[in-house]
Amino acid sequence: MQQVINVFLIGISIGSIYALMSLALVLVWRSTRVVNFAQAGQAIVTTYVAWEVVNRSGSFLMAFIVAVAIGGLIGGLVESGMMRTLFKHASDGPVASVAPVIATLGLLGVIRALVGLIWTNEGKRFESPVSTAGFVIGDTTLPFSRLNLLIICTAAFVMIVFSIVFQRTNLGLALRAAAYNPEIARLSGVKVAMTRTIGWVFAGAAGAVAGILLSPNDSLTPYSLDVLFVFGFVAAVVGGLESLVGAVVGGLVLGVGLSFITFYLGTSLVFPTAFIVLVVVLLVRPSGLFGVKGARSA
């Protein structure tokens, strides 16, 4: 029983990271109808910056703040610099529907290459800010560590901030209106173009948090967040790709599920399971758990 609780808690910890990545993807999807394949690339930049800041100043908190700020900045720049040009040029023609995917993939490649040029492809050791040894209760050591607790708390904090912004502020109202119906939102005075950029800024910040939470106690390379992207995507699809709540729930469910599979069946089954979950959700309930029906097919 104790073991089950432990595996569950670790699942929540890793799942909240997936949830953040999934949140980033959903934010971008809601604002511009694009799945941002460069999201992991943007996060890798901020994670390397965070690593650099931690190395120079030793302060994890400062690294966190810098990473989030830069993540938001990159998100905004990508939207206003690249995606706007793309929508202007490639709005029709045979490849219009795949052009955003290709463009963001290209961006991912550019970012990885630049990161590799600056910091080399060798794995960097990202030290954990807190102890990674498990908590000790009585005379048993649990696999659940301070780091896991910190991850859960940080992710929860970020999600609470997001939900306050979305539910309680005028900006959040504008963002939701623009996602729900851009035409009517524009008529009621919402600057839709600006909400798009803001959506990308929030997404960049959320992705940055996911990257910085995943990397401690692990090796950091230009490719180390690919897996996070895929799990974030699966989580977003499970949650419906439209819904912010769905993204979080999808991430947590996926994290807990994969945690149990890792523990009881072995790591090699994690990827196949995630893929099967993705395909089954897409086939059985294409709108996801929280999605709107009919959004999925062309």
Binding site: W29, V34, V35, F37, S97, V98, P100, V101, V230, F233, V234, V237, F271, A274, F275, L278, V279, L282, P286, R296, S297, A298
Partner: peptide, 12 residues
């Protein structure tokens, strides 16, 4: 599936 969904699934 269309566009990004297919792309994400095949990426996985």
């Amino acid at each position: 599936l269309s566009g990004p969904y297919l792309a994400g699934t095949t990426l996985a």
